[in-house]
Amino acid sequence: MSGGKLEVVRAGALTTLQDLGRYGHAGLGVPRSGALDQPAHRLANRLVGNPADAATLETTLTGVAVRASQAVTVAVTGAPAPVRVDGRPVAWAAAVHLPAGAVLDVGLTTGGLRSYVAIGGGITVAPVLGSRSTDLLSGLGPAPLADGDALPLGARIAPSRHADTVVWQGPQRELVLPVLLGPRDDWFTGAAVRTLAAARFSVSPASNRIALRTEGPALERAVHGELASEGMVPGAVQVPPDGKPVLFLADCPTTGGYPVIGVVPESRLFAAAQAVPGLPVRFVPTRRRRRPAE
C-alpha cells in the first residue's frame, strides 16, 4: 500500500537519510554509514511507532522543512531545535500529528548539531545493499536532500502508545571520549600517549560524517615507516602525518594507512555526533586487560 510523498520545502545545510547502517560489505570497501546519533534515531522511530531500522532524516545545524501529502505522525529528536507545524510551535521529542499538506519545520539547533526526524511508516526509498543510509564517502544510497525533492512514504501506522520520557541534559560543555589504546599505540612515543590524555583538544570545523577532526597538539610518532593498509572501524582514533587525532565516524573508509592509537567504544561515540565545532574534547586513554595475542 502506497503511503504518499514527503516533499522537501527547505533541505537545510545538510540533511541525509539514515538508518542503522550498511553492514556485511566492508570487506568489499563499503563503509558502514547509518545515523551518527543512534539513540536519537531509535527514539524518533519509537515515538512514531516505527521499527528501529526505518529511515529518518538526519539534519545538520539548520534543520529541515518538509510537507507530507497525507496526514502522518512525526517526531523530532537529537539536537533540540524549535519545531513548528505551519508556524505553530509543537513539542520536540514527542509524537506530533502533521496534517496532510501542512509544513513541519525544524529550526536551528539550540544545542548539539544533528536532529532526527522520523515519519510514521518510514521513508521508503529503495535500499542499497540493505540500507537506505546516505554514505557521503562513497556516494552509496540516496543523495543528500535538495529543495523540491519528493520522497516516498511507507503506509501509515499507528503511533506508539508507550510513553517515552526524554530528559534533555543540556548542551555538552566538553566531549569526553574514552579510548581503548591499540592496535597501533606502540607507533607513538610515551609522550604522545600522555599528551592524548592530558591535552585539551577541540572539535575542528572540518569535521563531517566521515570523521570528527580535532585541533590541538600533535602526537609524536615513535615509528616513522609507512603502515600497511589495514581495516578501520568507526570509533578508531587515527593519527595522520600532521599528528592531530581524527575520530572516525560512520562514513569512514573501511581500510586506512595511518596508525590507529586507540578506539572509542561505539556506545560513547554517539555524543560525538552532537559535538559542535569549537567544543573542547578530552580523551581518556585506557589499556585493555585482555591477554596478549598469540
Partner: peptide, 27 residues
Amino acid sequence: IRDIVPGEKTVLLYGVSDVDSIHRELP
C-alpha cells in the same frame, strides 16, 4: 562476526559477538 576486512598484512574482525571466545580459539 559482522564484517571481516582483510588488509595488507592483517585481518580485521569487526562487530564480533564474543570477542573473548574467538580470542581464545584463534591460537
